[in-house]
Write a protein that binds this DNA or RNA. Structure first.
Lengths: 243, 243
DNA sequence: CGCACATTTGATCCTGGTCAAAAGGCGTGG
DNA sequence: CCACGCCTTTTGACCAGGATCAAATGTGCG
């Protein structure tokens, strides 16, 4: 989605996630405070940003790139339990650690605050706290939607459901309503994608092939995909209200 | 778990969930305010407490009983996306509705506030807001744990995982550390249990039979279960740190 | 160009689903 | 008190969707 190195914005006013991240709740005065406290950090694709159970020193938002939240069993089985896209938040204020690894799927830049500093911020700004609650509720709803996909959907529906989710998030970010279909880039390797939808790489790949043959999707490269008819994709995904 | 009709407490001080529900964040003054604003409502097992997408008039906590959060597809496939036990909270302050049905699994009593009243409360009490955020974060972590179970665990591990979760929640509520095993009651029908762990009733039943034959569990009746060795159960469930 | 890794395709197996029927529980009414 | 009927749970026989194992094809990079 972002090509080339990402340069952090000069000021919060120029920040690409200014109106969607938790700081969107802040007025200019508060923003001026954040400005002095924030710092940026960039990770390369594949880097682990946080290890599960590790003590967090910072909290913050994804400014660019995509990260996945991974929960892994001793025997190697792995489930991706969430995707962090730009404006999504990492960490919770009242716990020392998170319960899963956070891994950069692409190059990732974070806008961070030291944990005690952030805790002081939300103590002083109810708006910020309120915004964080809203975002957490949204994450919870998304996680529960995903439970339906993992527990009850077929392989084909899972792949279509994943793509539907990507499309919906892309539309809600870029805001283009899409007239003649949508083109987007899949920010995960097949392996990670499979771990996200609870399948193996092989079945995932087979379902892509099928959906392509059936004209639901069009792969221009392995990562770049074109969806000619959104309603058709949503129907395949059995989204509630997908028609 | 609760037998016979449940009588709401005379005052918040006598309430069984006083120290675990969101009101645990309140000082005596705040509690006195809540006291004048709350109301109780009881539902019979099987009743739908809230329909998905229906406009919520109240928010509140489960005082007694168990409710399940159900997400259902048009073709009838159904996934339970959460269990509400005593002290758990229903609803989110900033949305008009919830994304899933809330169904009473046993008889359920709620302690409720009218939505606008509750919104006013959290506007005036940062402690309450803060407590709500903590609970929501906990729910999110639990949902993500469940995604691992749904996406990556075998039928046997799913059943053992469900029982492990029940045990852990029972211990954290009743606080008894359990010397010679734990006895508890399963508050769901097999059908609902199956919908919670993403299996059919038949496989769920078969796994119970297996676990019984292997001495991991002991069914005294269809709902009442005794677990002689918690560590053994956790091992079956492949819980992180289950040994 | 050649190597390492990601993705796709193929052949076979096995876990869990489906369909069907029996057994167990429980409340109602004779 | 027991008989009947309804619903839940268990068990059985068979089937299929997705996993596993293996190999071929694609892709990016030094």
């Amino acid at each position: 989605m972002i090509s080339g190195p990402f340069n952090p914005p000069e000021s919060c006013g120029d920040c690409p996630i200014r109106h969607r991240a938790i700081c969107s709740a802040c007025d200019p005065d508060e923003l001026a405070v954040l400005e002095t406290l924030k710092s940026y950090k960039t990770y390369a694709a594949g880097d682990t940003i946080v290890w599960a159970e590790e003590t967090l020193t910072h909290l913050g938002s994804v400014v660019s790139g995509v990260a996945s939240l991974n929960r892994t069993l001793d025997d190697g089985r792995c489930q991706v339990v969430g995707l962090l896209l730009p404006s999504d938040f990492i960490g919770r204020p009242d716990r020392a650690s998170v319960a899963h690894d956070v891994v950069a799927a692409t190059d990732v830049t974070l806008c961070r605050f030291e944990k005690p500093v952030f805790e002081d911020l939300i103590r002083r700004s109810p708006a910020l706290l309120r915004r964080l609650l809203t975002k957490t509720c949204d994450d919870l709803d998304a996680a529960r939607d995903w439970m339906l996909l993992l527990g009850r959907k077929t392989a084909r529906e899972k792949v279509a459901g994943f793509l539907s989710m990507l499309v919906q998030r892309a539309v809600q970010q870029n805001g283009h309503p899409a007239k003649d279909g949508v083109t987007l880039s899949i920010p995960l390797l097949r392996k990670d994608l499979a771990n996200y939808i609870g399948l193996t790489v092989e079945t995932t790949s087979r379902q892509f092939t099928q959906l392509k043959q059936d004209g639901v999707i069009d792969l221009t490269s392995q990562k770049d995909i074109h969806i000619p008819d959104l309603a058709a994709l949503f129907r395949e995904a059995k989204e509630l209200g997908g028609d």
